[in-house]
Amino acid sequence: MYTILPLSRGSVLGIEINGKVDIAQERELVAKAEELIGEHGKISLLVVLGDHVGTSFEAAMADMKWMLANMKHLAKIAIVSDSKLLAALVAVDAAFAKLASIEEKHFDKADIETAWHWIES
Results as ranks from 00 to 15, higher is better:
91 A>L: 08
26 E>C: 05
62 A>Y: 05
24 A>T: 14
49 L>G: 03
61 M>K: 13
48 V>P: 00
105 K>M: 04
14 G>M: 09
77 I>G: 07
27 R>Y: 15
98 K>S: 12
102 I>L: 04
31 A>S: 06
48 V>M: 06
39 E>P: 08
27 R>Q: 15
37 I>T: 07
83 S>H: 07
71 M>A: 12
60 A>L: 07
71 M>E: 15
20 K>W: 15
104 E>G: 10
60 A>T: 01
65 K>W: 13
32 K>Y: 02
75 A>L: 04
39 E>H: 09
92 V>S: 13
57 F>H: 13
55 T>K: 09
18 N>E: 15
64 M>T: 07
33 A>H: 03
62 A>V: 11
13 L>F: 11
81 S>R: 02
63 D>L: 08
56 S>W: 10
29 L>T: 03
100 A>W: 05
58 E>G: 12
28 E>N: 10
11 S>Y: 03
48 V>I: 14
50 G>F: 06
88 A>F: 15
31 A>F: 04
22 D>C: 13
64 M>Y: 09
20 K>V: 15
17 I>D: 02
44 S>R: 03
94 A>M: 02
77 I>S: 08
48 V>T: 04
45 L>H: 04
90 V>K: 03
81 S>G: 09
50 G>Q: 12
51 D>E: 14
73 H>P: 03
44 S>E: 08
40 H>C: 10
44 S>M: 06
11 S>V: 06
62 A>L: 11
72 K>G: 10
74 L>A: 01
18 N>M: 14
89 L>T: 11
102 I>V: 14
74 L>H: 00
101 S>F: 01
70 N>C: 11
57 F>D: 13
15 I>H: 01
73 H>F: 05
76 K>A: 05
43 I>N: 02
16 E>M: 09
57 F>I: 12
46 L>D: 00
100 A>Q: 12
62 A>S: 12
96 F>G: 11
40 H>F: 09
69 A>Q: 06
71 M>S: 11
102 I>W: 01
95 A>N: 14
72 K>Y: 07
106 H>F: 10
18 N>C: 15
72 K>N: 14
72 K>I: 05
76 K>N: 10
13 L>K: 05
58 E>I: 12
29 L>S: 00
